[in-house]
Design a binder for these strands. Structure first.
Length: 270
DNA sequence: GTTGAGCGTT
């Protein structure tokens, strides 16, 4: 599919702005967010059903509806009641993504041979990029290696490459990972909450479902509120479903709402 | 003087 421009506006009846697609016909959410800070998705009015429909969003990539993007005006979705906060989050993450200057982290190196020294580590990892720190963890008394260590690169690209593969170091296969401490920090960043806060639910209960509702129906419907990461419908039919969003705030905002889905009325609870 | 999933004295 060739590059096209899709028409996007804050509201249905407002002057649309043309946003470029990628070579494969998809549109990046980051491209939309560059013009509409805080955007979390797109929706449009189906010419057939006259209902608003969500645009499929998977990991930041917006996918065209069945018959292509067409000439309809796409309307920007914002996280409900949370525009300001998302502005800040998106701005900071967008800057990091665009400039490619994501900060590197120490990486834990697991499975090192007992004999491996820090010089060995530096020599090995320097083939991936500039190394700014290596450590081999040792027993304080004996000085024996504990069989693991840490490494840090200057370039984020080198870090990604190193994490993505296994490493043969001095005759043993080793793994490089983000240390748990950092993984927790990253989780907190994406969940927009502190490490001590109780986990906020990203999943809503959808009551009064009808048997003709498919997971795709529910996904299409709820995408207008934010990125849907999972839809679960119990089998056999039990008249309810669970919909999980990428953003817990979207889930919170839908709590208590009554929504018309495929003509029927469903009630939303957490 | 050993070992083989894990998570960092400064």
């Amino acid at each position: 599919m060739a590059e096209v421009y899709i028409r996007v506006a804050e509201e249905e009846n407002e002057e649309p702005m043309e946003i470029p697609s990628e070579d494969d016909g998809t549109v990046l959410l980051s491209t939309v967010a560059a013009q509409f800070p805080g955007a979390c998705g797109l929706r449009f009015r189906s010419p057939v059903s006259q209902c608003m429909r969500g645009v499929r969003l998977v990991e930041g990539v917006l996918h065209a509806p069945e018959n292509g993007w067409g000439n309809v005006v796409y309307v920007v979705n914002y996280p409900k009641d949370n525009k300001r906060k998302m502005d800040e989050i998106d701005a900071s993450s967008a800057v990091k993504m665009k400039r490619g200057d994501m900060k590197t982290s120490d990486l834990i190196v697991l499975g090192l041979p007992w004999k491996t020294t820090e010089q060995d580590l530096k020599d090995y990892f320097s083939t991936f990029g500039e190394v700014i720190m290596v450590q081999v963890k040792r027993d304080a008394k004996t000085g024996n290696s504990k069989g693991f260590g840490f490494v840090r690169f200057t370039e984020y690209e080198a870090q990604e490459k190193v994490i993505s593969q296994r490493h043969m170091i001095d005759g043993r296969w080793c793994d490089c990972k983000l240390p748990n401490s950092k993984v927790n920090m990253i989780h907190c960043f994406y969940l927009q909450q502190g490490p001590d806060e109780p986990l906020r639910s990203r999943k809503v209960f959808v009551g009064r479902c009808t048997e003709d509702m498919t997971t795709d129906d529910l996904r299409q419907f709820f995408m207008q509120y934010g990125e849907v990461t999972d839809v679960f419908i119990p089998k056999p039919f039990r008249a309810f479903a669970f919909v999980t969003f990428a953003d817990d705030q979207v889930a919170q905002s839908l709590c208590g709402e009554d929504l018309i889905i495929k003509v029927h009325l469903s009630s939303i609870f957490l």
